[in-house]
């Protein structure tokens, strides 16, 4: 039983990262009905950006005391800002002009954008895995045999805080309401005086910033990354968004944590473990979609952003 709960803890940490990435997929889909395939690569960029910041300020190992909080905050916020700006630029340069084009055109463009980002990262940091400094001391506590590490607390905590902030933003601010209105009816939103270009750019800014935060967290959690990291993580996060009901913010969070849990538990209990975990994850997706094509929260809470 301890093993099971141990995998639940591991799965939640994994799921926190997937959930943060899934939010970007689901927000962008909600507002312009585009599956932004470049989003997974923005997440990888987040790891590389935070790595660059840490190197720039000369951090290569564990940091203690108040400096730790400052450095973590600096790395997370810069990764979020840089990724956010990247997302806005991608939308402005690649997607905006195709907004009224047939749906296939922006989709292919998104795949192309993904290749561009991957190749740029390969040129920048090379084709091999790059180590990420172990900034955070990693004490762990045992609860009846279940080990919870500081990093896991950080991953889940950061994910939950970001999601809560996002919910408050979407439901309680004027700009958040403008985003929901634009997602529901673009023309009507314009007639309210909402500038939809700004609103769509804001959606990319926030979604990409969340991927940037996930990028930092994944660097800390795994201690390594490489240029292709976002391909699989992006695919799983996208799966999470679809599982929860694409376009649905709460669904993306739920889907992310569920995918993380399924992956961790499958790795533990299925003979052959890790090799089969992806098969299990995607089988779950197929099964859910057969019985609930709109995803878990796709109908009961049809709030898309």
């Amino acid at each position: 039983m301890e093993i099971f709960f141990q995998q639940v803890v591991n799965g939640l940490s994994l799921g926190g990262i997937y959930a943060l990435i899934a939010l970007g997929y689901t927000m962008v889909y909600g507002i312009i009905e585009l599956i932004n395939f470049a989003h997974g690569d923005v997440y990888t960029l987040g790891t590389f950006f935070s790595l660059a910041i840490l190197s720039a300020i000369g951090v290569s190992g564990e940091v203690h005391g108040p400096a730790l909080i400052g450095i973590v905050a600096l790395a997370v916020l810069s990764a979020m800002l840089l990724c956010g700006v990247t997302g806005v630029l991608i939308e402005r340069l690649a997607y905006r002009r195709l907004r009224n084009a047939p749906r296939l055109a922006p989709l292919i463009t998104a795949i192309g954008m993904s290749f561009i980002l991957e190749n740029v990262m390969q040129l920048w940091r090379g084709p091999s895995p790059v180590p990420f400094p172990q900034v955070i001391p990693n004490p762990s506590a045992s609860f009846g045999g279940v080990v919870v590490s500081a990093k896991q607390v950080l991953v889940v905590g950061l994910a939950v805080v970001m999601m809560a902030a996002l919910q408050v933003f979407i439901y309680n601010t004027k700009l958040g309401k403008a985003m929901r209105a634009t997602a529901q009816d673009r023309d009507a939103a314009q007639l309210m005086g909402i500038n939809i270009n700004t609103t769509i750019a804001l959606t990319f800014l926030i979604g990409s910033a969340l991927a940037g935060a996930a990028g930092f967290v994944s660097g800390v959690y795994y201690g390594t990354t490489w240029f292709f990291n976002g391909f699989e993580a992006g695919l799983k996060a996208f799966t999470a968004a679809v599982l929860g009901g694409i376009g649905n913010v709460a669904g993306a969070m739920l889907g992310g944590f569920l995918i993380g849990l399924v992956e961790a538990v499958a790795t533990q209990y299925i003979p052959g473990g890790a090799q089969w975990s992806n098969v299990v994850v995607f089988s779950v997706l197929v099964l859910v979609l057969i019985f609930r094509p709109s995803g878990l929260l796709g109908e009961s809470l049809p709030e898309k952003v």
Binding site: K177, R180, A181, Q184, A188, I194
Partner: peptide
């Protein structure tokens, strides 16, 4: 369109187009 609204033109569109989920 958003600038036109700011100039002082309100438009209640065909088919009402209320934000159904709000």
């Amino acid at each position: 369109p958003d600038q036109v609204v700011r100039r002082g033109i309100g438009h209640s569109p065909e088919g009402r187009r209320v934000f159904a989920r709000m």
